[in-house]
Design a protein around this nucleic acid. Structure first.
Length: 588
RNA sequence: GAGAUCAUAGUUCAAUUGGUUAGAGCACCGCCCUGUCACGGCGGAAGUUGCGGGUUCGAGUCCCGUUGAUCUCGCCA
């Protein structure tokens, strides 16, 4: 046995015991004739004490950072205790030690706060993973995983694996493909999700299925996106939307309680997609703070009369399709510099507005705005009243095309939430967004596409509208997202389970009968052999872990992540393959 | 496909309007040190300023190109 105890477990109660530890040398502190060293493993850090005798051995066999060391000695009470670490009351007085493996000097410090940059840490990921920060993240991930499995197991869900080498489909994200050697010139695709398989499992009668499973999408990346990522994929039969929302709301409450000790006792708020867009400008509202969007004018229709009554006419407002406002509480004292900063922020190409109008509702009841020329004090008071602004508040207005302006206002709201410190990551405010549109119009492709995916069922009362192309935009789906603190962490739908409706759906998406048969014949065939009503949901597992860990980036919650360009900088993948391999695969 | 920011010692950063021999912290190496735990003291080594071109008497600094990184928009059913 290499060790009798680990580096995190020794306490006062162990004083006097003879122990053997094995781990990595974190630091060496030499004092002439005695030496202290910290030994680290996954469980913690234990101080080693080399007395005068042992110290001379260190001269002949020196130890350095990250050496793998085995020591045997007696646990003793420290004369100077360290209350910063759990083992800080004791130390091991080394009687003998053995270097199990020497180590090069690592390229960055392996401590709580490393001095290494992202790229370097990725290249030496196995070293970065020794740091307590990363270790805690992966531990959290494991606990979330276990908690999810425990909950679903209790409810009788079965974990069933589905294949990774599958067929490429045209809809949705770009597929990763894998050439087939035995079928030259043909390719498998890696699944974007196990969607069709889990539906087939429902047809097979496995009415409660889940899987913690890798999914693959060949799209451009972000801090919270990886080319391969993990989903908690679930599906149930003989359920309605209500059953699914209740079941998985329960899952979230369980995980929050289990992993974070957070008790959410109330029912998650539910908000329709339309309301979310109207009040927050997006379909994943951050409801940790209010600051709801005020719709002064939308698609040319004026809701706040005053804004159409500018003195001598105000071109910016008159010509705008949409005018939106938010009321920033307690910000009326913002300086010119601060409001300019906000304007500059809105003018960045990613936001794309030409400016931000502000009205300061001063504490003395007066108004000061960038549009004093166009609106009298009384008129500004009316606008303030419409926006629900009181003394001391700052109203920010954006005007322009509906889509762009709403999107920009959504971003501005979040930005102001950040500036005011209203987005505390310890504050968990989950909600359901429901009643998503079934279709959305794809401007580039000049066609209607499925907003969720083509297996999503329209609301029964809206099926009729599928016969009228001009009303596609009105059709709502039995689709829902779960949103946490402004991030979509899961989404799902009640599925289509009848062949005729599925055919109708494919036709609505502009797919010919032949094409639908070729791509999804297996699914429609299955629907002819007794498919039960079913529906499900999938959660972005990496994102959920990052949120629970209070971080933006999912990378440090994945043991071996890829960088911004989808590269594994440790392996240096992807890479070229040799000529012979190419030939064998029929690629050359 | 696009925008922003960045690239200088092992590492994290600095270097004034373009001006002497490119500096500092940490890490590393050597010597000293019996209670440290961010140990301390003294000394030392360490650089093709990502790469290629240009402007200039002179470029880490300005310009063009290129490669890579981070964040974002498009994209991600």
């Amino acid at each position: 046995m290499y060790r009798t105890k680990n580096c995190g477990e020794l306490r006062m109660q162990h004083v006097g015991e003879q122990v053997t530890l094995a781990g990595w040398v974190q630091t060496v502190r030499k004092f002439g004739s005695i030496t202290f060293s910290d030994l680290r493993d996954r469980y913690g850090i234990t101080q080693l004490y080399f007395n005068e005798l042992l110290n001379s051995q260190l001269d002949s066999t020196p130890i350095g950072r990250e050496y793998v060391l085995q020591v045997t000695g007696k646990v003793v009470e420290r004369s100077n205790k360290n209350n910063k670490i759990p083992t800080g009351e004791v130390e091991v007085e080394v009687a003998s030690f053995k270097i199990l493996n020497a180590a090069e000097v690592p390229p960055f410090t392996i401590e709580e706060n490393t001095d290494g940059g992202d790229e370097l840490r990725m290249k030496y990921r196995y070293l970065d993973l020794r740091r307590p920060t990363l270790r805690r993240n992966l531990e959290l991930r494991y606990k979330v995983n276990r908690s999810v499995r425990n909950y679903l197991d209790t409810l009788g869900f079965w974990d069933i694996e589905t294949p990774f080498l599958i067929k490429s489909t045209p809809e949705g994200a770009r597929d990763f493909v894998v050439p087939s050697r035995m079928n030259q010139g043909q390719f498998y695709a890696l699944p974007q999700s196990p969607q069709t398989f889990k539906q087939l499992l429902m047809v097979s009668g496995y009415d409660r299925y889940y899987q913690v499973v890798k999914c693959f999408r060949d799209e451009d990346l972000r801090a919270d996106r990886q080319p391969e990522f993990t989903q908690v994929d679930c599906e149930m039969s003989f359920v309605e939307q209500e059953d699914i929302l209740n079941t998985f709301e329960g899952l979230f409450k369980h995980v929050f309680k289990d992993v974070k000790g957070v008790d959410i006792t109330y029912a998650f708020p539910r908000i329709t997609f339309d309301d979310a867009m109207w009040h927050y400008g997006n379909d994943k509202p951050d409801i940790r703070f209010e600051m709801k969007i005020q719709n002064l004018k939308v698609d040319g229709a004026v809701n706040c009369l005053t804004i159409a009554q500018a003195i001598g006419g105000f071109k910016v407002f008159d010509e705008a399709e949409t005018i939106l406002a938010i009321c920033v509480p307690g910000a009326s004292e913002y300086t010119r510099k601060q409001t300019d900063e906000i304007t500059e922020w809105a003018k960045r190409p990613q936001i794309g507005m030409t400016g931000v109008i502000n009205i300061k509702c001063n504490n003395d009841g007066t108004f000061k705005s960038t549009v004093d020329k166009f609106f009298s004090a009384e008129q500004q008071a009316e606008i303030a009243a419409f926006c629900g602004a009181g003394k001391g508040d700052l109203i920010l207005l954006l005007a322009g095309k509906e889509t762009r302006t709403r999107k920009a206002m959504s971003e501005l709201r979040l930005e102001m939430g950040n500036r005011l410190g209203l987005r505390n990551h310890d504050d968990y405010k989950p909600l359901w967004v429901i009643d998503f549109p079934l279709f959305e119009y794809d401007e580039d492709g000049n066609r209607w596409v499925a907003r969720h995916h083509p297996f999503t069922s329209p609301k029964p009362e809206h099926i009729e509208l599928m016969n009228d192309l001009s009303r596609y935009g009105e059709i709502k789906a039995n689709a829902y997202d779960i949103v946490l603190n402004g991030t979509e962490i899961g989404g799902g739908s009640i599925r289509i389970f009848q062949r005729h409706l599925q055919e109708k759906m494919f036709a609505a998406l502009g797919m010919s009968k032949e094409e639908a048969q070729e791509k999804f014949g297996f699914l429609m065939g299955a629907f002819e052999y007794g498919a039960p009503p079913h529906g499900g949901i999938a959660f972005g597992f990496d994102r959920l872990c990052a949120l629970l860990g209070g971080q933006e980036s999912i990378r440090d919650f994945i043991a071996f992540p890829k960088n911004n360009s989808g590269r594994d900088v440790m392996l240096d993948a992807p890479s070229a393959i040799d000529e012979a391999q190419m030939k064998e695969l029929g690629l050359k």
